[in-house]
Every structure is written in structure tokens, then in C-alpha cells.
């Protein structure tokens, strides 16, 4: 090749590079790619950094499971602040202030406070609520079904949280299934399935997140297997809580694939 052709060749190459910049790959486009690679669990857990998980005994058991895992992995869902009481209800989630003192109230520094009061104090970036186990959906009252009453409480709770922590992402988690032992006694699984279905609709209507953990816990009969429950009734054991954790990780992955969350953005926001 003659030496005089080299500059022209380089000029053509330069023009090609400037004309087709997308071939090298752009970070923002790949975030919305549904076939994006699965992020490592340690990265997915950061989706829950600066978040509050509030609820009843199911959240208490999940908290204890996370604490047990943190013995060997201190970063295991390390960014979650847990607030729970065994008998916490959706009705209590809708309280603006503590209506009556009881062990069922959530605590902040050993003081009884409502969900919205604690949220206002902590100002978490995300709030996840799991309650309803202690709300009697089978009971009709004042012309309102149990499910209608529960969803009314959800809507009130969301309204209070939007007032006290307007910037926080809000999420409700489905009820977990019951075991055969409880279903044979109370025949409530169908009712809880309907509540979960309507809860998801309500969350969509309110523009908040909904996380379904029920489906992943059900056996072929649509119930909670005894092998996943430590009391063989409602409450998850370590194996059940491992599934709960996996659902949370899958949810975070889904947010990433949908372009609604990027770990790098969370990191820079924290800085």
C-alpha cells in the first residue's frame, strides 16, 4: 500500500466509528433488556437497602431467619430495618396514632408507635408491609366483608405513608398460605387467595408494588407444606423463609430487568 493512502484509510475508519457508536454497547439500554444476566444475590440484596419491613409474626420470623444468616454473611439483607409484632394487623397499619397500648404495636426504641409514625422517624427509601394474618377476613361487619375492610385499611395505610414519607417506595406483600391442618379446621385458603388477588389489584390501582410470596410456597394442593412450617399451621420455618428470601431476590431482579432499578444508581444515591 502506498504511504499516501494510509491517512485516507484512517479517515474512513474514523468516520465509521463516529457514524456507528451504538455497536460498542450502551449501559442504559442493557438495563431494560429482559434477557439481562441474573445479578449476584449480594447485589440483588442491595435493592432492599435503606428499607423498612413492617408486619406481624411472619415478618418477625423472617427477621430472625435473616439474623441467623447474618452470622456467616453479615451483608445478608443487611439494609433492612425490621419492625414487627406477632399480632400486628392491617387495621393497626392504618392507625395515625396508637389507639390502645398493647404488645401488638410496633416499637421504636421500645416505645409503641404506629407504622406511619415509625416511617416518619426512620424515613426509609422503601417500605414493605406484610399483615393480614391476624385480620379476620371471614368476619363481615357493618355491611363490609372482611376483604373489603382489609383493603380499606391498606388504602388508609398507604395514604398515611404517602403523607409522612412521600418519597418512599411502597410495597405490600401477599399473605402466605396455610397448612392442611389449618385448612381442614378453618377452610380459609380460598378466602386468602381472593384477598391476595384483590390486594394485587388494589396495589396496582394505588400505584404501589405488590410482591406475591404465596405462589412460591404452595404445594400441589395450593397449601403450605408442613415441611416449610415450624408450627405446621401458618408460620414459616428456615426452609420456608429461604423461599421468602428467594422471592425477594427474584423481585429485585425483575425490577432490574424492567429498568426500574440499577444497583449502580442505588450506590450513587447512597453516596
Amino acid at each position: 500500500m502506498k504511504k499516501t493512502n494510509l491517512p485516507r484509510l484512517l479517515l474512513v475508519l474514523l468516520c465509521c466509528l463516529l457514524a456507528f457508536p451504538g455497536n460498542a454497547g450502551i449501559a442504559e439500554d442493557s438495563r431494560a433488556d429482559a434477557s439481562a444476566a441474573r445479578l449476584p444475590d449480594s447485589v440483588l440484596m442491595t435493592y432492599y437497602d435503606h428499607s423498612m419491613f413492617a408486619g406481624d409474626s411472619l415478618i418477625c420470623m423472617f427477621r430472625n431467619y435473616v439474623r441467623a444468616r447474618q452470622k456467616t454473611d453479615p451483608q445478608y439483607f443487611a439494609g433492612i430495618d425490621f419492625r414487627c409484632a406477632y399480632s400486628f394487623t392491617l387495621q393497626m397499619a392504618a392507625w395515625e396514632k396508637v389507639m390502645e397500648s398493647s404488645s401488638a404495636n410496633l416499637k421504636y426504641k421500645a416505645r409503641e408507635m404506629t407504622l406511619s409514625q415509625i416511617a416518619q422517624t426512620l424515613q426509609p427509601e422503601k417500605i414493605f408491609v406484610l399483615a393480614g394474618l391476624n385480620d379476620n377476613f371471614a368476619r363481615k361487619s357493618k355491611g363490609e366483608t372482611g376483604i373489603e375492610r382489609g383493603l380499606r385499611h391498606v388504602e388508609t395505610a398507604v395514604g398515611l405513608l404517602r403523607k409522612t414519607v412521600p418519597e418512599a417506595g411502597l410495597f405490600f406483600i401477599s399473605l402466605t398460605p396455610v397448612t392442611k391442618k389449618i385448612e381442614d379446621k378453618r377452610h380459609i385458603q380460598e378466602l386468602w387467595n381472593e384477598y391476595n388477588r384483590q390486594l394485587e389489584e388494589k396495589c396496582n390501582e394505588l400505584g404501589i408494588g405488590y410482591i406475591d410470596i404465596a405462589d412460591s410456597l404452595k404445594d400441589e394442593n395450593g397449601l403450605l407444606p408442613g415441611a416449610l412450617s415450624h408450627d405446621k399451621e401458618y408460620h414459616l420455618n428456615d426452609a420456608g423463609n429461604e423461599i421468602f428470601a428467594q422471592v425477594l431476590l427474584d423481585y429485585a431482579q425483575a425490577q432490574y430487568e424492567a429498568g426500574r432499578w440499577s444497583p449502580s444508581l442505588s450506590e450513587s444515591a447512597a453516596e
Binding site: 457508536p21 460498542a24 439481562a36 449480594s42 440484596m45 451483608q75 444497583p263 449502580s264 450506590e267
Partner: peptide, 21 residues
């Protein structure tokens, strides 16, 4: 130009996050 394009091929790598175990 090639170097600048090549450094942005991945949205996230575990090493880029501050949350590594």
C-alpha cells in the same frame, strides 16, 4: 474512541457495586 465505547458495555458488574459481600 474505541476505548471509550468499550468501557460501557455492561450496566453493572459486581465489582462496581459498594455492596459486595
Amino acid at each position: 474512541l474505541l476505548t471509550a465505547c468499550g468501557s460501557r458495555t455492561a450496566a453493572v458488574t459486581p465489582a462496581e457495586t459498594a455492596s459486595a459481600a
